[in-house]
Nucleic acid binder design. Structure first.
Lengths: 199, 199
DNA sequence: TCACATTTGTAGCGCTCACTACAATTCTGG
DNA sequence: CCAGAATTGTAGTGAGCGCTACAAATGTGA
């Protein structure tokens, strides 16, 4: 048996470039030509490795989520629910205005509404956003069990709330809001949290 | 002088239909064929009346904002800042899940990131979103002057916060969140407000 | 009634899109 | 060193995009 010509590009590095293009232009706004240019490969290589434009997006989303997972681990390991909220809100304000990346969040700007033939792209993004919300909810359930959140607090509602604020910050960042503006939003959001907290 | 053949369609009614298409599919996802079908006219009529696809979007956005303006007037006429916040949050939860419209908000799903040639579409949407934020800010400045908000409260930050939460609710609604979920978010958001309020 | 101004419907323009056929290239197993 | 397997670069493919030329239709003013 022969094993064939080896791939001449690094799939993860190429995915990082594709991620940035989707992030900046959205799924429908990103063209194959832009993607292949950024990835430094030709269309046949792209299709051999990822199957389709949508397949490439899914791979990029998985990579995005994988990177994000470590970051989230750090955040939910904070000692109290209030501190989890503070870290994720302030952290979001910083990462969404990090000049190393396009402004905002790939999971928001990637595409909330798409044309015929790409109807499942928005669902795909939503599924990834839900990961964060679920992780927060689980953390807050634990926080309530530990007496760290009031008995009357609703962990799922709090997680959903943070998820909404984070998405909203992404919308603001995508239209040019600066870091200070996002931190202000984070600071106000946090006040809603302190009311539910025992710490 | 002759006045020419009169237009055979109602521009506002046609704009309502176009608005819905942009709302559901986003700017780039909406095709001229879908738009003309929904509007009940042919392409030349569309281009004679609105100039271009982007011109049509702007007209649809203006109409969207005009309708929204009355609604907002009602809201900022509430007696206290806290009640303004409650009305706009709960009202948003309802309108963004109104089955008469596509879910979410046109100013969010219309297009946060677009491809080459449509770079100003996201800015256009952002400008319309800013109208709401400015109106809220002005209302909160007044509220603080009236002693209705604490002296330490920052009207601009509060308006920005509400604007972010509303955008975040739009993101959630676009991916299928139901009315109850949005109301939960609204309820939690409101707690951040009560802390700044004297009523 | 007739010249003129404007809209309408038909048909199709050039262009770019996502995607691929194909042959040359580059590797491994024997 | 060669046969086979996989990737690479070139050069397109058909389809759908935003948009428009053109002639027929429909109104107004003189």
């Amino acid at each position: 048996m022969a094993m064939g010509r080896p791939r001449a590009f690094d799939a993860d590095a190429a995915l990082d470039q594709a991620m940035e293009v989707f992030w900046r232009h959205g799924y429908e706004g990103a063209t194959i030509a832009q993607l292949t240019d950024a990835m430094g490969i030709n269309p046949p290589s792209l299709y051999a490795a990822f199957g389709s434009k949508e397949g490439l997006l899914k791979a990029a989303l998985d990579r995005y989520s994988a990177k994000r997972a470590c970051w989230l681990e750090q955040i939910v390991s904070a000692p109290t629910a209030r501190e989890v909220a503070e870290r994720i809100l302030m952290g979001t304000a910083d990462t969404q205005t990090d000049p190393a990346n396009p402004p905002g969040c790939l999971l928001v700007q990637g595409g909330l509404a798409c044309g015929t033939g790409s109807e499942n792209v928005p669902f795909e993004l939503a599924a990834h956003r839900a990961q964060t919300e679920n992780q927060l909810r689980d953390r807050f359930i634990r926080a309530r069990a530990e007496g760290d959140l009031k008995e009357t607090a609703d962990p799922a509602a709090l997680a959903r709330y943070l998820s909404a604020v984070i998405a909203g910050m992404g919308v603001m960042a995508s239209s040019g809001a600066d870091r200070e503006a996002l931190r202000q939003v984070a600071a106000v959001s946090l006040k809603a949290f302190e009311e539910q907290s025992n710490s």
